[in-house]
Write a protein that binds this DNA or RNA. Structure first.
Length: 502
DNA sequence: TATGATAATTAGTAAATTATCATAGCGTCTACTT
């Protein structure tokens, strides 16, 4: 059957979006594929459609529980019942039930952590997997080295599953990250489907603002003026909370904070409220956004700078999925880069901590046979954070297998940590360089992803010049003058603006 | 978590030491698993 017919039959669409057809054709040809498709262009279709062509099951590695739930529901709405998410939401009974009937499921979603369970892996080995999918594959590169080490083990997992046909999906990956993904998964011969990272309907505006208080005032001003809904990104949970309160008090707008420190239920609730237009503004940390399919987000403000250009693009990419004009502000105060630098260092263990740990190992809290055993509380006494400890444990286990002496182990762990810190710092410097540059913002970003500017757009960036009025709430009112006018909100906005000027 | 203001304590009723409390603080992100 023609691909278009399949598309119509199972999904009700008449034509493919950019890149979808190329990726799907490659998969159906039996070629490993790395597909870099812009956000909101239906990446999931790239494995859903082949699911109806292939006989076996599709195994999808997904980074977030909420993302898995979303995908399960989405497939459910399309009338597909053979879907399951294998994660900790399942009770033990449910999990056993599912594991006993794996072959009955067409689409199986799973986290990289779950794949580390030998019991589950054994069950999966007995299953006919026709396609192994890594969704949000840049996580391999972004998280795999330290934050979620299980991401870096997907290549091994894939091998132990018999090297099934593989599809890696992502929206933003530099050439280096793409290479990293391909190497890590062991799919060197993969077909690459690459589309531009440019989002012409998102204007980019960078503003240098002296001091923290002025920045706060500017955010309040922007949030009052700009057409909503919008997201404001922070690198601090506390700041996100404070700003949400300020927005509610001073701007009388529906705002809420969102960060990893909130419990699961609250997070789901806030995300739902935002998607259903009950909230105008989300004050978030980097925890918010992945898998949030909201079409009409009109602005993104960065109160703090992200730690790398890829993260910035992912975050602003959440605006304007409907194709309408949207704007991304980044507010920079000299010295802001200190925060990401400190974060980068605190994620990894220090040299002293590593020395201390190896001293512990030498004096007998050491290696028994193959197993590394630490006394309880070693993590605490060494002052290791959860992330640092996980990283060290993982590295030790890996290095102990390969290296003969403790000293060799120590040196190679130090080397690894140094390399990571250098990498992270380099990323921050590049971000900073972009902020401080006076070249066209878009051109710089495109070049960073080794793309060229093909055409100049009218509403580009602060360097090329844009008309800020295009993005204000009152502009929308004029534009929709013949339609429904929400006077109450309009007047409230005017009032707030005049209050702010005083 | 340090800082500073105020209060309480003490063989010595004036001044130094210690206790208590409120407050500001260059600011610290990301997920899965039992």
């Amino acid at each position: 059957m023609e691909l278009e017919n399949l598309l119509k039959k199972h999904f009700g669409y008449l034509s493919f979006k950019t890149g979808q057809k190329e990726a799907i054709s490659a998969i159906l040809n039996g070629q490993h594929t790395l597909a870099m498709l812009p956000t909101g262009t239906g990446k999931s279709l790239c494995y859903q459609l082949p699911g109806y062509v292939f006989d076996g099951s599709i195994l999808i590695v997904s980074p977030l529980l909420s993302l898995m739930q979303d995908q399960v529901e989405q497939l459910g709405r399309l009338g597909e019942k053979r879907v399951v998410a294998l994660n900790s939401f399942l009770s033990l009974e449910e999990k056993n039930y599912v594991l006993d009937r794996l072959q009955d499921y067409k689409f199986i979603f799973i986290s990289p952590e779950m794949l580390q369970s030998s019991f589950i892996l054994q069950k999966l080995r007995n299953l006919a997997i026709s396609l192994f999918v890594v969704d949000e594959a840049h996580c391999i590169s972004q998280w795999g080295y330290d934050f979620r080490p299980d991401y870096s083990k997907l290549g091994e997992i894939r091998k132990s599953l018999g090297c099934p046909l593989t599809l890696a999906l992502t929206a933003t990956a530099t050439r280096k990250v793409r290479k990293d993904i391909i190497q890590s998964l062991g799919i060197e011969d993969a077909v690459k489907v690459e589309s531009t990272i440019d989002r012409p309907n998102i204007a980019i505006w960078i503003e240098e603002i002296e001091g923290y208080q002025k920045k706060t005032d500017r955010v309040l001003e922007l949030a009052a003026k700009l057409e909503k809904p919008g997201i404001i990104y922070f690198s601090s949970k506390k700041m996100a909370e404070q700003m949400a309160l300020l927005l509610e008090e001073k701007n009388n707008c529906n705002a809420s904070a969102y960060h990893g420190g909130l419990d699961q239920d609250t997070r789901i609730l806030i995300q739902q409220q935002f998607i259903h237009n009950q909230l105008d503004v989300i004050c978030a940390t980097s925890a918010f956004g992945m898998g949030v399919n909201k079409e009409n987000i009109r602005f993104i403000i960065h109160f703090h700078m992200p730690m790398q250009i890829e993260s910035y693009l992912q975050e602003i990419g959440r605006a304007g999925r409907d194709g309408l004009a949207s704007i991304a502000y980044l507010l920079y105060s000299p010295g802001d880069e200190q925060l990401p630098f400190q974060l980068a260092e605190s994620e990894l263990p220090s040299e002293q901590q590593i020395d201390w740990l190896f001293h512990e190992l030498e004096i007998g809290h050491g290696i028994k046979g193959d197993a590394l055993q630490f006394n309880q509380g070693t993590q605490e006494r060494g002052g290791f954070s959860e992330v640092q400890w996980r990283l060290v444990e993982n590295l030790l286990r890996k290095e102990a297998k390969e290296k003969s002496s403790l000293l060799d182990c120590k040196e190679s762990i130090k080397e690894f940590v140094n390399e990571r810190i250098t990498m992270k710092k380099k990323n921050i410097y590049q971000m900073l360089q972009w902020i401080l540059s006076n070249r066209c913002r878009r051109e710089f970003l495109l070049n960073y992803f080794e793309e060229q500017v093909t055409s100049r757009i009218e509403q580009c960036c602060d360097i090329c010049g844009i008309d800020e009025k295009n993005y204000s709430a009152s502009h929308k009112l004029r534009k929709n003058h013949l339609g429904k006018i929400e006077w109450k909100e309009y007047l409230a906005g005017l009032l707030l603006n005049s209050e702010l000027r005083e």
